[in-house]
Amino acid sequence: MAETKVIGGSQDVQSNNLQKSRISLSRRQTELIAGLSAGFSTTVVTHPLDLIKIRLQLSIADINGANNKRFGSILGILNKINEDAVANYNKARLKPQQTRRGLEALNNYKSTHLVRQFYRGITPNLVGNISAWGLYFTLYAEFKSMITTGSSTINYFSSSTLAGISTSLLTNPLWVLKTRILASSRNDSKAYKSITDGVISILRKEGILSFWRGTIPSMFSVFQGSLQFTFYDNFKNYTQKRYETDQLTTAQYIYISATSKIFSMSIMYPSQVVRSILQNYEGKSKDERTIRSAVKHLWSKEGIRGFYKGISANILRVVPATCITFVVYESVKNRLTQLEKEETP
């Protein structure tokens, strides 16, 4: 009996050691997993609003002035999405489906085709956001630990700026593909059919450097992220000190993240519009692909309002998106940290 207990105890020790080895994560791994989880959750929930925002940014007021009416352009975009969904639904009913039985059944519903239209371009958006947020949170934590200054505000701003520049340069090709796919309907003759089709088309017609169009305006967006993280960490530290706690509630994370995002976005939004225009310039001459030409085009066509096209849809998108991002990030990070502490003897 004694021998049996020893063997059982040995097995328990081995099992505990195996469990510890599975849960033990480095700080980098914790940041990466939390960032990836945040990017995935945010993209899936807010992709339809992202699609509407990009199409608004790329819209030009027509001759009849339809876009001058408040929300007129939003209704036009929604009507176009609905028309495309109906057209695809009618095509699906007329031709035999060469898909799995489950997909054949789904094709018989208009709602299926409507969802597909709203989630056009979800793949590059998912890949881009998951990669970007995973890289950003990881690099942000690394730079914060590397940079030593007497001011926490300077540390937050410089760390987030360096993380943003690095992430922007690495992921810009994905944003070019995402912008062009979301800007067009599946039924458009020149629309990219897939990521692979988009990559091949850009390489053949425009060259590899086209994947980094809009990089300079993206740098302005980096400063928006820097402002956001500076606001966020300062608000977070203030709230933690005020309530004397290291772990805030979900409601507090939502309030802090939403406030920091609205402040930073209001300051830097015009750079997003210019970036979308530059990334969508396909088949244009080099003289028409510059920041100056994009700004001149916006100003001559629509004035100052042109630089804030899509901001209403963007507010509806980024506020819940930011809240989801930071709540998921902080929750996953806190949970992983808590698991590590529970398993540490």
Rank of each mutant, 00 (worst) to 15 (best):
I200W: 07
A183N: 06
T167S: 11
S210L: 02
Q228N: 08
L169S: 11
M219D: 13
T196I: 15
Y243P: 00
T250L: 08
F231K: 01
K205H: 02
S185Y: 02
A191E: 08
N237F: 02
S221Y: 06
Q240Y: 05
I195C: 07
K193R: 14
Y243A: 10
N187I: 13
F231H: 01
I208W: 15
V176K: 03
L177T: 07
Y232A: 00
L248D: 15
M219P: 01
T230A: 00
R242P: 03
K190G: 09
A191I: 06
T239G: 00
Y243T: 03
P217I: 12
F223S: 01
I195P: 07
S210V: 02
K190F: 05
Q228K: 04
S226P: 00
T245K: 10
I195S: 05
P173I: 08
L170S: 11
K178C: 04
S221T: 01
M219W: 04
I195E: 08
P173S: 09
E244C: 01
I216Q: 14
F229T: 01
G207P: 13
T249C: 05
W212F: 13
V176I: 09
M219V: 04
K205P: 00
S168A: 12
Y192M: 09
R204W: 10
T179Q: 12
V176T: 15
T230I: 10
Q228S: 05
L177K: 11
P173M: 08
N187P: 01
S185A: 06
T171D: 07
T249D: 03
Q240P: 03
T167F: 12
M219S: 08
S189C: 08
L169F: 03
D246N: 05
R242Y: 04
F223A: 03
V199L: 14
T196S: 15
D246I: 00
N187K: 09
T179E: 13
I195R: 10
L177I: 15
K241S: 15
L248Q: 09
E206Q: 06
A183R: 01
R213K: 05
Y232N: 02
I181A: 11
L227Y: 02
N172K: 07
Y243H: 04
L203I: 09
D197F: 08
A191H: 07
L170V: 14
D197H: 13
D246H: 06
T171L: 09
G207Q: 13
K178L: 11
L203V: 06
K241W: 00
G214R: 03
V222N: 03
